[in-house]
């Protein structure tokens, strides 16, 4: 870890704290640390105490959910200039997803307890940090909603059509009734 006083410019350079007041920045430095994660390492795990949040300076972080017997589901990737972790600010302060370094990740981390304590003691700092966090949470929420829409999926009626055809096939009593069944039969014959 790097000595805290060297972190001031790193904080100022990151888009998250763009234009931060010098006094507030100095308060932040006291809670910050410089960290590095190799590809495959985890920044935090679902359910664990959210003790930190991270400003990503380089690399990509995957926010994912683990599931037994299948590969984890990547919900979102977080890139350079963005923030990983907001559970530290919301009670009961437990991470809701896994965060895995996809590549080598360099990040500034902030100690949650340290920062929360300072935010409570100094409402100006508290407001400034929240003011920067809320838009990110809003953006994530709307992005998640958009993602949920599955906008690029094939249009539905096309799907319904095939479902209907299958149904007709199954329900059909006589082989001569359902063209699909006839086709299948013909194919089988040709195959033999």
């Amino acid at each position: 870890m790097v000595k805290p006083d060297n972190l001031a410019p790193l904080i100022e350079d990151h888009p998250f704290f763009k234009g931060v007041d010098t006094k507030l920045r100095d308060l932040l430095v006291g809670c910050a640390a410089n960290e590095r994660f190799e590809a495959g390492q985890f920044l935090f795990h679902e359910g664990q105490k959210a003790e930190k949040f991270y400003l990503i300076r380089a690399g990509t972080v995957a926010i994912e959910i683990d599931q037994p017997g299948r590969p984890p589901i990547v919900v979102e990737t977080i890139a350079e200039g963005e923030v990983a972790g907001w559970a530290w600010i919301v009670e009961p302060y437990r991470a809701t997803f896994d965060a895995r370094a996809v590549t080598l990740v360099r990040a500034l981390s902030f100690d949650a307890k340290c920062l929360r304590r300072k935010m409570e003691a100094d409402p100006t700092l508290g407001y400034d940090v929240l003011r920067r966090f809320v838009p990110i949470m809003a953006h994530r929420l709307s992005a998640a909603r958009l993602q949920m829409l599955d906008l690029y999926a094939p249009p539905k009626p096309a799907k319904e059509k095939t479902v209907k055809a299958e149904k007709a096939d199954k329900k059909s009593k006589g082989a001569n009734r359902a063209p699909d069944a006839r086709l299948k039969k013909a194919k089988k014959k040709d195959g033999k």
């Binding site: 990737t77 890139a79 200039g81 963005e82 953006h139 992005a143 958009l146 993602q147 599955d150 690029y152």
Partner: peptide
């Protein structure tokens, strides 16, 4: 490039394309 749903060995971005705009 970003995808809404990662599958297989995809190691690229996951999320909507508007996220890429925000990254500038």
């Amino acid at each position: 490039v970003t995808v809404d749903r990662a599958t297989g060995k995809w190691g690229g971005n996951v999320g909507v394309v508007t996220n890429l705009i925000a990254r500038g």
